[in-house]
Amino acid sequence: MGVTKEDVETAITSSLSPSHLVVTDTSGGCGASYEIEVVSEKFEGKRLLERHRMVNTALAPHMAEIHAVSIKKVLTPAQAQPQPEPAADKAQA
């Protein structure tokens, strides 16, 4: 059994307490591929690489079953504010 979208959301929510989270299943249903957007205060002062590592760490227990994770956005609340959410449009498309 693959990893569900909810599994991914729960894992990220519990370790990063995001203020905004979009998990998109891009696997076509088999649960092996996800796109992720996260906004969290915990990214404050962290470089992009470190932010990605934090997300990877959160997902570590599931990684064996996930084939691909694409981390599209890792933003702090402050960074997420000024942009009128061009990313959000895409995610909903």
Partner: peptide
């Protein structure tokens, strides 16, 4: 690399990131 996926890019001996980065 403490990185779970590939590709992995190294520049000047240092891990730079995966595809998204």
């Amino acid at each position: 690399s403490s990185w779970p996926t590939f590709p992995q890019l190294y520049i000047d001996g240092e891990f730079f990131g995966g595809c998204d980065i």
